[in-house]
Design a protein around this nucleic acid. Structure first.
Lengths: 361, 361
DNA sequence: TGCTGGCACTCGATTCTACCGAGTGCCAGG
DNA sequence: CCTGGCACTCGGTAGAATCGAGTGCCAGCA
């Protein structure tokens, strides 16, 4: 198999021209257009023969004879990996991001929700935000609150500010004092422990308290094990604009509704250390006409969440990459700050592209 | 203005036929089709002349000369108000609803989220669920949890099981004990009070405690006043299927993204005691091609939230009305039960404390 | 050898025409 | 007052003609 790395300089230039033009116009690109593009000084005839080669090698394809070429997924892949730097945001967008992160002052959930809106505004594509996982997060507080005669709510505050809750059927009436006692025992046992590893050592005097505690403990266990598969989707309406086939829109939206799919896609991508997934590179049929650009959200160096941009395969990759990285980074900082406002005093250092997108299928 | 009430019996029958047919086929309906419809025993010529009248009176319109008629908003309105009963769900759907509400066992938010999915599955339209307002809800618990050196989280548990939170910048370092003291004072002051009316009477000995308390109180006030304008949208992908113009889809989705608009629309509709809004009857331009079917969610007789179905104006009103009502009612019951499981001793249902693991995937 | 201009050819898109048929409005007769 | 009949309208479809952007190939030139 011909290796991507060594395409002719000229072939690469031609491929780049085709991809750029196609991203802009969504029309198949002919040899004449390429010839006119900057940095290419050969005639259209030469370009045609090169294009034949590029097509043979799988970078381009023709919708039909006597039409121009459009990039294949492989073509986009080469473009992203070899031909393009992450790019920078325009000053207006950069300002928008800064303004956003200065102004935003709210709880995690809402912040993530609004971050996803920001991303989709910046890029005009749909966006997804994967919340920081609090797998390893320790509990700051555990509390039982009575809601009704036989119902209590277990409220857990984690160190990252997230609040998890779960209602518990008590099966019999439990007086306030018992609830309070159980709550105190739980809190003592769970404080500063990771959710999974909470045990309560000694039995108290009261068997009812013990019963409640054990109910709460199992609920706690469930909370810990349950992958918190929420994902925030921003700007789904942009999808309708990005695709023109209404059934494509429908299919993609339907996939987005299944949070699970999106979450595992993002996790997968992150794990492989990749930042762009194009077309069918992931296994999901329904997203075959999409590309996803992902950037990690790191809190104090620990990668813990992700932001992603979801658009058509002919999306503006440099811009999307830039937006995802900047927003991901700023979001990480912002989350960090929210525990220690002083940390936010340090000016955000200028972001420079450290690494090119890597990873192929 | 001709009053809606008194359309000819025959005119009404014709209108009904046109609306039904159009809802089914999305094609303009001609006089022949109407003549063939059940319950109409006049010739197409007669129907034509009646249709002319109906058109003059604003119930029907022609997309162009020599095409059939399609209903206007006014036509739909008459159909909904005079010609149709809410209808009943099919046995399969009814069972789906029952199964859902038996199985669902989770926190408010997730339940609402999943209810909206249920609704959109039942109807194949998009759905919205307006959470029960907890304007008047009293606090069951108020707590301050330290998150970082200068940051605390105010966690409020309301009587309806909702958990509200807000982080507080303390501006200086506050030791755990102070936080605990403040937390205790707040809890005592706020317990069983509506969020708005919390005051702390006497000053404690410690000025730092007082400071923290006052910070927390103002945060509490903000929480109370802030209209909690969240709305759960289900099945946006169904919209893409319901409309065929991609820009309509885009516009409607964009409107749905602005939670605010949807919330005030629903509130408005509820307030007017209406259950169906058709086309431009509400003021929102971007939803002019939609109809909304709304049903209240009452908890113990108190109307406190709403469910809605959002589809094209040519939606299946009887089915949508039935679905909205049933789901709204069951949701209200379910919410009520979640405070007092005994209340849910549904007829012919053995009640066992059941604890279903919500294992996903 | 490799690039170029030229040329014949392909084929989707556009335009034009004809035509079909569903649907209308109108009217005379039962 | 209803009905069948009739002339008319006009969107949608089908086929033919045309256009033009684009291709592959090739001979000739640096």
């Amino acid at each position: 198999m011909t290796d991507t790395q060594d395409l002719d300089l000229r072939k690469a230039a031609i491929l780049e021209a085709v991809v750029s033009e196609y991203i802009g116009t969504a029309q198949p690109v002919g040899s004449h257009h390429v010839a006119r593009a900057a940095g290419i000084n050969v005639s259209s005839a030469t370009i045609r023969s090169e294009m034949v080669a590029l097509e043979r090698e799988g970078y381009l394809m023709q919708p039909h004879t006597s039409a121009g070429r459009i990039p294949t997924d492989k073509g986009y892949r080469f473009f992203v990996d070899q031909l393009t730097e992450p790019g920078v945001l325009g000053p207006a967008q950069r300002q928008k991001v800064s303004r956003f992160f200065e102004q935003v002052h709210c709880e995690m959930e809402e912040m993530l929700e609004r971050t996803s809106s920001l991303l989709s505004e910046l890029t005009s594509y749909a966006s997804v935000v994967l919340p920081p996982s609090h797998e390893a997060a320790v509990a700051r507080s555990v509390q039982l609150v009575g809601l009704g005669p036989r119902v209590a709510l277990l409220v857990v505050v984690l160190a990252d500010g997230a609040v998890e809750k779960r209602s518990i059927d008590l099966a019999e009436e439990v007086p306030e004092e018992v609830l309070a006692a159980a709550s105190a025992r739980l809190h003592a046992a769970a404080h500063s422990r990771p959710l999974g590893g909470v045990t309560v050592s000694a039995a108290s005097g009261d068997p009812l308290v013990d019963h409640v505690v054990s109910l709460a403990l199992s609920a706690l266990g469930e909370l810990a094990s349950e992958a918190h598969d929420r994902v925030f989707v921003g700007g789904p309406s942009r999808l309708a604009a990005a695709f023109d086939a209404v059934e494509t829109v429908s299919a993609v939206l339907a996939t987005l509704e299944q949070q699970l799919v999106v979450v595992s896609l993002l996790r997968d991508v992150l794990e492989r250390g990749v930042s762009v997934v194009i077309g069918a590179e992931h296994g999901y049929q329904s997203l075959a006409s999409c590309a996803v650009v992902v950037a990690p959200v790191s809190v104090e160096g620990q990668p813990s969440g992700a932001v992603g941009i979801l658009g058509p395969t002919r999306m503006n990759y440099p811009q999307a990459l830039a937006a995802a990285r900047v927003v991901g980074e700023r979001l990480g900082q912002r989350i960090h700050e929210s525990f220690d406002p002083a940390a936010g005093a340090a000016p955000a250092e200028e972001h420079r592209p450290r690494r090119r997108a890597r990873g192929r299928r």
